[in-house]
Nucleic acid binder design. Structure first.
Lengths: 299, 299
DNA sequence: ATACAACGATTGAAAATTTCTATCAACAAT
DNA sequence: ATTGTTGATAGAAATTTTCAATCGTTGTAT
């Protein structure tokens, strides 16, 4: 039964019997039969069948919600009992939006000092992907915006406020300024994240509100790529202050606070809403709270 | 996996491998092997083994908590999907303390008018047994005191306040009074519930507080037995007003309010704390809320 | 001390189930 | 028409589950 529920979760995620079977480590007929058996025991169709996978029925969607909860609880149970036996071990899968990737170290490093047997997987994801992956039990936690778009069934720990800076060569236009306005930022050639990133959508909004015409000359989903371009001196970019600091400013590259308005967005840790949490998740949340205190003291 | 968790729940309840196996509908070796397999997958001992069942280990207790939740959720899922398909059907198992048994009809009758395909099982239980049975997923709801002893992980809907009356023959001592005091009640030969009943413990407390010496001449765990004795005219009893009313007063039997103090205890419906509730439980809670409104209007 | 009863573990065979490979049928794209 | 993709189906193999029978231990009554 529990494995059949896993099949349903995988199927809803992959929208494809074959791929879902692969991620579950079984063959496609096995997964097909599992879904069919689930349908028989519940007495309803869960999957809309045409010549191929179309989608879940309303009953299937409802069952999916239950499946996520039940499978999640079963995993939490196993993890908690294991933690009782041998302390905190295992793997924490954390997904982060690109602008927070540098901040992850501030979370993982003190965590590892406390719990040396825990291994990490850090993934770069969009905020939407993070919420999806949390729902599908593919990751244990996410680092993303808390205050912009709806979060769903998650618990959140605010960590810090993102403030925006213009990253540019000191001999480029605006390179000598103490502060710049969003209207001014709009006038220089920018390289920014791709529009599937929430950070980009935020910056787009701020530029538009300042009356700037929007035409970034380069897009990437990698902050490293953006930073490399800024280093050439021919592009500028907009980055959160915390990230610019981590990447390291040289004499030729400056980070200039952007004002009018001095925009701020809250970044935080999100974890699945579950009571009680898994021991690993609970420990990560505790670490995040400590980090939030430190960041509030020394902004 | 799910069935193994059911084994654990049954074992914790029965404290006996053989009986637990029987309630699960499997043989004792099957249940033994199931528990052992659970222990192997979790990597801990769940059961303290001597020559016979001793108890659960701390890890076993923790696993039991998870098992109750997971098994409960799995059942709730099945029930909810079934309700989507064919409306509210199935069985509602309700346990009630004896003094509320007559009130159950006020709940079940309007419920059945709305949902004719639901069948009921009504059990007479002590308040402690009700809470245990709720934990062990043996009943769906209980009717008991809300304000005296700790309830545990349940949701409660207050229904009405129990007030106490002396039930006695009109030609017996005190039989002609408008009201009586607890001190006076202590002077007549009483038949009361057995001390495992919370109602009895409440009445004991009230009698003791009034300085009365406590010596009921007859005990039973059945209200019917108590009432039958009162009907002989040789015994009196103490009953909640609502119950005395239902049992029907004759010209020879009177129900006299007991004052000093005019004691009151809250009776309500308790159901397992689960979000969302099963459809049957949710419907029962809704019915209980309606009943509470009616009883508050016309006390 | 001995016999006995109760309890849970173990064993081995039978039964049920699950899983896989191979193949099919339906449909879509070309 | 042809080809590729997708999910269902069939049959064989493997695994797991279940049960009846039995064993070993422990506590108890005689």
């Amino acid at each position: 039964m529990l494995d059949k529920l896993e099949y349903l979760i995988a199927l809803a995620r992959e929208q494809h019997f074959g791929r879902a079977a692969e991620t579950c480590g079984v063959t496609q007929p096995t997964l097909s039969a599992g879904i069919k058996q689930l349908e028989e025991t519940l007495g309803v169709l869960l999957v809309q069948r045409g010549s191929r996978f179309i989608g879940l029925t309303p009953e299937g969607q409802r069952t999916l919600d239950w499946a996520r909860r039940i499978v999640g609880d079963a995993r939490a149970m196993r993890e908690e009992i294991k933690a009782l036996r041998q302390g905190l071990t295992g793997q924490l899968r954390i997904a982060a939006i690109p602008t927070t990737l540098a901040m992850v170290a501030a979370l993982t490093t003190p965590f590892r000092a406390r719990h040396p047997d825990v291994r990490f997987t850090i993934l770069s994801r969009t905020s939407i992907e993070i919420l999806n992956a949390l729902e599908n039990l593919q990751i244990d936690a996410g680092l993303t915006y808390l205050d912009n778009e709806p979060l769903g069934r998650v618990s959140a720990v605010p960590l810090y406020h993102e403030r925006y800076q213009l990253l540019t060569a000191s001999d480029a236009p605006l390179g000598d300024r103490i502060t710049v306005t969003w209207a001014e930022v709009a006038t220089v050639p920018l390289c920014l994240l791709t529009p599937d990133m929430q950070n980009r959508r935020i910056i787009d909004g701020l530029l538009r509100a300042a009356g700037g015409e929007l035409q970034p000359t380069l897009e990437s989903n990698s902050m490293i790529a953006l930073f490399a371009h800024v280093r050439t001196g021919r592009w500028a970019s907009v980055m959160p202050a915390q990230l610019a600091e981590t990447l390291g400013l040289t004499t030729t590259i400056r980070a200039i606070p952007i004002v009018e308005p001095e925009a701020m967005h809250t970044i935080g840790l999100v974890v699945p809403m579950r009571e009680p949490m898994t021991p690993l998740t609970a420990a990560l949340v505790a670490e995040a709270r400590r980090l939030a205190v430190r960041m509030a003291e020394k902004p």
